[in-house]
Protein backbone atom coordinates (compact mmCIF):
# COMPACT_ATOMS: atom_id res chain seq x y z
CA UNK A 1 0.00 0.00 0.00
CA UNK A 2 2.62 2.55 1.07
CA UNK A 3 4.85 1.18 -1.66
CA UNK A 4 2.36 1.92 -4.41
CA UNK A 5 1.64 5.26 -2.83
CA UNK A 6 5.28 6.28 -2.84
CA UNK A 7 5.63 4.91 -6.35
CA UNK A 8 2.70 7.08 -7.47
CA UNK A 9 4.02 10.09 -5.61
CA UNK A 10 7.37 9.73 -7.40
CA UNK A 11 5.65 9.52 -10.77
CA UNK A 12 3.43 12.45 -9.92
CA UNK A 13 6.32 14.61 -8.77
CA UNK A 14 8.18 13.92 -12.02
CA UNK A 15 5.14 14.79 -14.13
CA UNK A 16 4.83 17.89 -11.95
CA UNK A 17 8.07 19.22 -13.44
CA UNK A 18 6.34 19.29 -16.83
CA UNK A 19 3.40 21.07 -15.23
CA UNK A 20 5.80 23.70 -13.97
CA UNK A 21 7.05 24.13 -17.53
CA UNK A 22 3.49 24.66 -18.79
CA UNK A 23 2.83 27.13 -15.99
CA UNK A 24 6.02 29.02 -16.85
CA UNK A 25 4.56 29.74 -20.28
CA UNK A 26 1.36 30.92 -18.68
CA UNK A 27 3.19 33.13 -16.21
CA UNK A 28 5.11 34.79 -19.04
CA UNK A 29 1.83 35.68 -20.70
CA UNK A 30 -0.10 36.61 -17.58
CA UNK A 31 2.78 38.23 -15.76
CA UNK A 32 3.95 40.36 -18.64
CA UNK A 33 0.78 41.57 -20.30
CA UNK A 34 -1.82 40.64 -17.71
CA UNK A 35 -3.71 38.72 -20.36
CA UNK A 36 -5.71 35.82 -19.07
CA UNK A 37 -5.23 33.12 -21.62
CA UNK A 38 -7.91 30.50 -21.19
CA UNK A 39 -6.61 28.66 -24.23
CA UNK A 40 -3.16 27.89 -22.79
CA UNK A 41 -4.04 24.33 -21.77
CA UNK A 42 -5.45 23.70 -25.20
CA UNK A 43 -2.18 24.75 -26.78
CA UNK A 44 -0.57 21.91 -24.81
CA UNK A 45 -3.20 19.59 -26.27
CA UNK A 46 -2.51 20.87 -29.79
CA UNK A 47 1.24 20.38 -29.25
CA UNK A 48 0.62 16.83 -28.15
CA UNK A 49 -1.40 16.14 -31.29
CA UNK A 50 1.25 17.72 -33.48
CA UNK A 51 3.82 15.49 -31.82
CA UNK A 52 1.58 12.52 -32.42
CA UNK A 53 1.09 13.49 -36.06
CA UNK A 54 4.77 14.02 -36.74
CA UNK A 55 5.64 10.83 -34.92
CA UNK A 56 3.16 8.81 -36.94
CA UNK A 57 3.97 10.39 -40.28
CA UNK A 58 7.75 10.58 -40.17
CA UNK A 59 8.73 8.33 -37.32
CA UNK A 60 10.50 11.16 -35.52
CA UNK A 61 10.49 10.43 -31.82
CA UNK A 62 8.33 12.44 -29.42
CA UNK A 63 11.38 13.44 -27.42
CA UNK A 64 12.88 15.14 -30.48
CA UNK A 65 9.80 16.69 -32.10
CA UNK A 66 9.93 19.79 -29.86
CA UNK A 67 12.81 20.90 -32.11
CA UNK A 68 10.20 21.14 -34.87
CA UNK A 69 7.13 22.09 -32.87
CA UNK A 70 8.84 24.75 -30.78
CA UNK A 71 9.28 27.18 -33.70
CA UNK A 72 5.86 26.18 -35.04
CA UNK A 73 4.10 26.98 -31.77
CA UNK A 74 6.13 30.16 -31.49
CA UNK A 75 4.71 31.24 -34.86
CA UNK A 76 1.20 30.20 -33.82
CA UNK A 77 1.66 32.28 -30.66
CA UNK A 78 2.75 35.32 -32.71
CA UNK A 79 -0.20 34.83 -35.03
CA UNK A 80 -2.66 34.61 -32.15
CA UNK A 81 -1.10 37.65 -30.54
CA UNK A 82 -1.22 39.91 -33.58
CA UNK A 83 -4.57 38.64 -34.89
CA UNK A 84 -6.49 38.58 -31.63
CA UNK A 85 -4.80 39.49 -28.36
CA UNK A 86 -3.29 42.77 -29.55
CA UNK A 87 -6.76 44.10 -30.36
CA UNK A 88 -8.09 43.36 -26.88
CA UNK A 89 -5.31 44.96 -24.81
CA UNK A 90 -7.14 48.22 -24.39
CA UNK A 91 -10.47 46.61 -23.61
CA UNK A 92 -11.98 45.37 -20.42
CA UNK A 93 -10.57 42.09 -19.19
CA UNK A 94 -13.92 40.38 -19.75
CA UNK A 95 -13.54 40.99 -23.47
CA UNK A 96 -10.10 39.41 -23.33
CA UNK A 97 -11.53 36.40 -21.57
CA UNK A 98 -14.39 36.13 -24.07
CA UNK A 99 -11.84 36.10 -26.87
CA UNK A 100 -9.53 33.53 -25.34
CA UNK A 101 -12.48 31.33 -24.41
CA UNK A 102 -13.51 31.55 -28.06
CA UNK A 103 -9.99 30.51 -29.00
CA UNK A 104 -10.19 27.61 -26.56
CA UNK A 105 -13.44 26.39 -28.11
CA UNK A 106 -11.90 26.78 -31.54
CA UNK A 107 -8.80 24.71 -30.75
CA UNK A 108 -10.82 22.00 -29.07
CA UNK A 109 -13.34 21.73 -31.89
CA UNK A 110 -10.54 21.75 -34.45
CA UNK A 111 -8.74 18.93 -32.68
CA UNK A 112 -11.95 16.96 -32.54
CA UNK A 113 -12.55 17.60 -36.22
CA UNK A 114 -9.09 16.47 -37.31
CA UNK A 115 -8.22 13.75 -34.83
CA UNK A 116 -11.68 12.60 -33.67
CA UNK A 117 -12.60 12.08 -30.05
CA UNK A 118 -10.75 8.89 -29.16
CA UNK A 119 -7.47 9.06 -27.22
CA UNK A 120 -4.26 8.70 -29.22
CA UNK A 121 -0.82 7.62 -28.15
CA UNK A 122 2.50 6.98 -29.81
CA UNK A 123 3.44 3.28 -29.84
CA UNK A 124 7.13 3.75 -29.09
CA UNK A 125 9.64 6.03 -27.54
CA UNK A 126 13.32 6.56 -28.02
CA UNK A 127 13.79 6.58 -24.30
CA UNK A 128 13.30 2.99 -23.27
CA UNK A 129 13.50 1.09 -20.06
CA UNK A 130 13.24 2.03 -16.48
CA UNK A 131 15.38 2.67 -13.47
CA UNK A 132 15.15 0.73 -10.27
CA UNK A 133 15.61 2.60 -6.98
CA UNK A 134 15.09 0.22 -4.09
CA UNK A 135 11.69 -1.30 -4.66
CA UNK A 136 10.50 1.56 -6.87
CA UNK A 137 10.50 1.61 -10.63
CA UNK A 138 10.76 4.82 -12.55
CA UNK A 139 10.13 4.96 -16.26
CA UNK A 140 13.16 6.42 -17.98
CA UNK A 141 10.91 8.56 -20.19
CA UNK A 142 9.37 10.21 -17.13
CA UNK A 143 12.74 10.86 -15.60
CA UNK A 144 14.19 12.31 -18.79
CA UNK A 145 11.07 14.44 -19.30
CA UNK A 146 11.34 15.85 -15.81
CA UNK A 147 15.03 16.57 -16.26
CA UNK A 148 14.48 18.27 -19.61
CA UNK A 149 11.68 20.37 -18.08
CA UNK A 150 13.88 21.53 -15.25
CA UNK A 151 16.69 22.36 -17.68
CA UNK A 152 14.35 24.33 -19.94
CA UNK A 153 12.88 26.21 -16.99
CA UNK A 154 16.32 27.30 -15.83
CA UNK A 155 17.32 28.02 -19.41
CA UNK A 156 14.36 30.37 -19.74
CA UNK A 157 15.16 32.06 -16.45
CA UNK A 158 18.71 32.64 -17.70
CA UNK A 159 17.28 34.03 -20.93
CA UNK A 160 15.08 36.38 -18.94
CA UNK A 161 17.92 37.68 -16.80
CA UNK A 162 20.85 37.68 -19.25
CA UNK A 163 19.63 38.72 -22.69
CA UNK A 164 18.30 42.08 -23.81
CA UNK A 165 15.03 40.57 -25.06
CA UNK A 166 14.58 38.73 -21.79
CA UNK A 167 15.25 41.82 -19.76
CA UNK A 168 12.75 43.73 -21.90
CA UNK A 169 10.13 41.12 -21.03
CA UNK A 170 10.91 41.41 -17.35
CA UNK A 171 10.93 45.19 -17.48
CA UNK A 172 7.54 45.20 -19.18
CA UNK A 173 6.13 42.95 -16.49
CA UNK A 174 7.45 45.21 -13.72
CA UNK A 175 6.39 48.56 -15.00
CA UNK A 176 5.17 49.11 -18.52
CA UNK A 177 5.43 52.90 -18.47
CA UNK A 178 8.99 52.91 -17.24
CA UNK A 179 9.93 50.20 -19.70
CA UNK A 180 8.54 52.10 -22.68
CA UNK A 181 10.50 55.14 -21.53
CA UNK A 182 13.67 53.10 -21.88
CA UNK A 183 12.93 52.24 -25.45
CA UNK A 184 11.21 48.91 -25.01
CA UNK A 185 8.61 48.52 -27.74
CA UNK A 186 5.80 47.01 -25.74
CA UNK A 187 3.98 45.38 -28.66
CA UNK A 188 7.09 43.55 -29.79
CA UNK A 189 7.84 42.53 -26.23
CA UNK A 190 4.28 41.32 -25.72
CA UNK A 191 4.38 39.37 -28.97
CA UNK A 192 7.69 37.83 -27.92
CA UNK A 193 6.32 36.86 -24.51
CA UNK A 194 3.17 35.40 -26.01
CA UNK A 195 5.12 33.50 -28.65
CA UNK A 196 7.61 32.17 -26.12
CA UNK A 197 4.86 31.26 -23.66
CA UNK A 198 3.06 29.33 -26.37
CA UNK A 199 6.25 27.71 -27.65
CA UNK A 200 6.99 26.29 -24.20
CA UNK A 201 3.84 24.20 -24.53
CA UNK A 202 5.49 22.54 -27.54
CA UNK A 203 8.26 21.17 -25.33
CA UNK A 204 5.76 20.11 -22.67
CA UNK A 205 3.55 18.48 -25.30
CA UNK A 206 6.45 16.49 -26.75
CA UNK A 207 7.62 15.33 -23.34
CA UNK A 208 4.13 14.33 -22.27
CA UNK A 209 3.67 12.27 -25.43
CA UNK A 210 6.60 10.05 -24.51
CA UNK A 211 4.48 8.38 -21.84
CA UNK A 212 0.89 9.66 -22.16
CA UNK A 213 -2.02 9.61 -24.55
CA UNK A 214 -3.87 12.65 -25.81
CA UNK A 215 -7.53 13.47 -26.38
CA UNK A 216 -9.24 16.71 -27.47
CA UNK A 217 -10.75 17.52 -24.08
CA UNK A 218 -7.61 17.29 -21.99
CA UNK A 219 -6.83 20.97 -22.56
CA UNK A 220 -9.21 21.89 -19.73
CA UNK A 221 -7.20 19.88 -17.28
CA UNK A 222 -3.88 21.38 -18.37
CA UNK A 223 -5.39 24.84 -18.31
CA UNK A 224 -6.67 24.74 -14.76
CA UNK A 225 -3.69 22.73 -13.66
CA UNK A 226 -1.26 25.36 -14.84
CA UNK A 227 -3.35 28.12 -13.24
CA UNK A 228 -3.20 26.11 -10.03
CA UNK A 229 0.58 25.92 -10.22
CA UNK A 230 0.76 29.63 -10.97
CA UNK A 231 -1.61 30.53 -8.12
CA UNK A 232 0.53 28.51 -5.74
CA UNK A 233 3.84 29.87 -6.96
CA UNK A 234 2.80 33.48 -7.36
CA UNK A 235 4.42 35.55 -10.05
CA UNK A 236 8.12 35.90 -10.50
CA UNK A 237 9.63 32.99 -8.60
CA UNK A 238 11.20 30.32 -10.79
CA UNK A 239 12.08 27.84 -7.98
CA UNK A 240 8.61 28.48 -6.54
CA UNK A 241 7.13 27.48 -9.86
CA UNK A 242 9.06 24.24 -9.88
CA UNK A 243 8.14 23.36 -6.30
CA UNK A 244 4.49 24.16 -6.95
CA UNK A 245 4.50 22.01 -10.07
CA UNK A 246 5.90 19.09 -8.11
CA UNK A 247 3.34 19.59 -5.33
CA UNK A 248 0.47 19.67 -7.83
CA UNK A 249 1.75 16.60 -9.65
CA UNK A 250 2.21 14.69 -6.39
CA UNK A 251 -1.20 15.75 -5.09
CA UNK A 252 -2.81 14.59 -8.30
CA UNK A 253 -1.12 11.21 -8.07
CA UNK A 254 -2.08 10.88 -4.44
CA UNK A 255 -5.73 11.63 -5.17
CA UNK A 256 -5.73 8.99 -7.85
CA UNK A 257 -4.22 6.25 -5.75
CA UNK A 258 -5.87 6.99 -2.41
CA UNK A 259 -9.33 8.05 -3.45
CA UNK A 260 -10.56 7.39 -6.93
CA UNK A 261 -8.89 7.46 -10.36
CA UNK A 262 -11.51 9.95 -11.48
CA UNK A 263 -10.61 12.25 -8.61
CA UNK A 264 -7.36 13.43 -10.19
CA UNK A 265 -8.85 16.68 -11.41
CA UNK A 266 -10.95 17.02 -8.28
CA UNK A 267 -7.81 17.07 -6.14
CA UNK A 268 -6.20 19.75 -8.31
CA UNK A 269 -9.27 21.95 -8.21
CA UNK A 270 -9.65 21.59 -4.47
CA UNK A 271 -6.00 22.45 -4.07
CA UNK A 272 -6.47 25.46 -6.35
CA UNK A 273 -9.42 26.81 -4.38
CA UNK A 274 -7.60 26.15 -1.11
CA UNK A 275 -4.54 28.08 -2.27
CA UNK A 276 -6.69 31.00 -3.39
CA UNK A 277 -8.45 31.10 -0.07
CA UNK A 278 -5.43 30.75 2.15
CA UNK A 279 -2.63 32.39 0.20
CA UNK A 280 -4.13 34.70 -2.42
CA UNK A 281 -0.67 35.96 -3.35
CA UNK A 282 0.84 32.52 -3.74
CA UNK A 283 3.38 30.79 -1.55
CA UNK A 284 6.46 32.25 -3.18
CA UNK A 285 5.29 35.24 -5.17
CA UNK A 286 6.37 38.84 -5.07
CA UNK A 287 3.12 40.32 -6.41
Amino acid sequence: MTDTLIQNLLNGALTGCIYALIALGLSLIFGVMNVVNFAHGDLVMVSMYLTFWIGLGTGIDAAITPLLTFPLLFLIGLLVYYAIIDRTLRQRYVTQIAVTVGLMTFLRALAQLIWKAQPRALPYSLIQGSIQIGSYTILASRLVSAAVSVLVIFGISLFLSRTWAGRAIRAASDDLDAASLHGVDFRQTYALAFGLGSALTAIAGGLLMTFQQVDPTMGVRFGLLSWCVLAMAGLGSIPGLLISGVIVGAAEAMGMSLWDPRARSLVIYLLFILVLWLRPRGLFGRK
Partner: peptide, 12 residues
Protein backbone atom coordinates in the same frame (compact mmCIF):
# COMPACT_ATOMS: atom_id res chain seq x y z
CA UNK B 1 -17.83 19.44 -34.41
CA UNK B 2 -17.16 21.49 -37.55
CA UNK B 3 -20.03 23.70 -36.46
CA UNK B 4 -18.13 24.48 -33.25
CA UNK B 5 -15.12 25.64 -35.25
CA UNK B 6 -17.30 28.07 -37.20
CA UNK B 7 -19.22 29.09 -34.10
CA UNK B 8 -16.09 29.90 -32.12
CA UNK B 9 -14.82 32.05 -34.97
CA UNK B 10 -18.14 33.93 -34.95
CA UNK B 11 -17.74 34.40 -31.19
CA UNK B 12 -14.22 35.77 -31.47
Amino acid sequence: SFYLVVYSVVLI
